[in-house]
């Protein structure tokens, strides 16, 4: 089914050359159709810049995406932090650029609670429900576990994590008191309306980590890799930047993610 979808989503860009097309794999953070549509301008841009076709591909699930990537199916991948760390370690993908949102090319997570909840510190979360994005979400769960531990709260025993899957829903779960606190990616929260943010109290903030990377597979021609990096860095067209919710790209090295990889390895 995933293969069918993947094949179905392969649409050749206008300037297909005689060379083998490059495959841009996008991790399934949204519906496949939306991803395909959103990333078409990116594929077309890269096709023009690289002089060879670029195809957009995704998968119906994260597991399938990781599996496909492990088989080196994608020449270029755009994935969340924890998935990138997996792909780096399992399939040798290496980051060549990172997304810049606003002025920052890094992101951080935080633990939040309602202003009127009476919860003021991380330690107040003992016995509380904490809404989180996903067990693989670095800035939406993994880093917050560290914060809890640092605050003397055992993330496995002292709190009940409720994985809600969407940032908005996590926030609203806090607001409607379905959960007592939220583990959220602060960079994602920045775009939320002021009325919502004002109702929240920040209990603790995680250290900064690099933002989502654009990585290439092991063995991809170095010249092409550089041209890809250059094309991304030079990208200014909003239709190219928008799918990444980026304002720009900046060069990245794989080592920029070493610390993050170490941190994830420590997580259960």
């Amino acid at each position: 089914m995933a293969a069918v979808l993947a094949v179905g989503l392969v649409a050749s860009p206008a300037q297909a050359g005689s060379a083998e097309p490059l495959r841009l794999g996008v991790f399934p953070y949204q519906s496949p159709l939306k991803i395909y549509n959103d990333f078409q301008p990116v594929a077309q841009y890269l096709s023009r810049e690289l002089g060879r076709p670029v195809l957009v591909e995704t998968s119906p699930s994260m597991e399938r995406f990781v599996e496909q990537a492990s088989r080196q199916r994608y020449d270029i991948v755009y994935a969340g932090l924890s998935y990138y760390i997996q792909l780096r370690e399992k399939a040798g993908y290496r980051a060549i650029a990172t997304v810049v949102r606003g002025d920052a090319s890094s992101r951080r997570g935080a633990l939040l609670a309602r202003q009127d909840s009476g919860i003021r510190t991380v330690s107040d979360l003992k016995g509380k429900k904490v809404g989180a994005l996903h067990p693989d979400a670095v800035c939406g769960y993994v880093l917050q576990r560290q914060l809890l531990q640092e605050g003397g709260v055992n993330p496995d025993r002292d709190v009940e994590f409720v994985f809600i899957g969407k940032l908005d829903s996590i926030i609203f779960s806090v607001l409607n008191r379905t959960v007592d606190a939220a583990a959220v990616d602060l960079s994602e929260l920045a775009g939320k309306e002021r009325g919502i943010v004002d109702k929240m109290r920040v209990l603790a903030v995680t250290p900064e980590v690099p933002d989502f990377p654009i990585a290439v597979r092991k063995g991809l021609n170095g010249g092409i890799v550089e041209r890809i990096r250059l094309a991304l860095i030079q990208a200014r067209d909003s239709s190219v930047l928008a799918p990444f919710r980026a304002t720009a790209f900046e060069p990245a090295r794989d080592s920029d993610y070493d610390a993050l990889a170490a941190l994830i390895r420590k997580s259960p």
């Binding site: 908005d168 609203f172 379905t178």
Partner: peptide, 10 residues
């Protein structure tokens, strides 16, 4: 059911 309150609010 999915506790997707953001979508509910939307």
């Amino acid at each position: 059911v999915n506790r997707d309150f953001g979508t509910l609010n939307a």
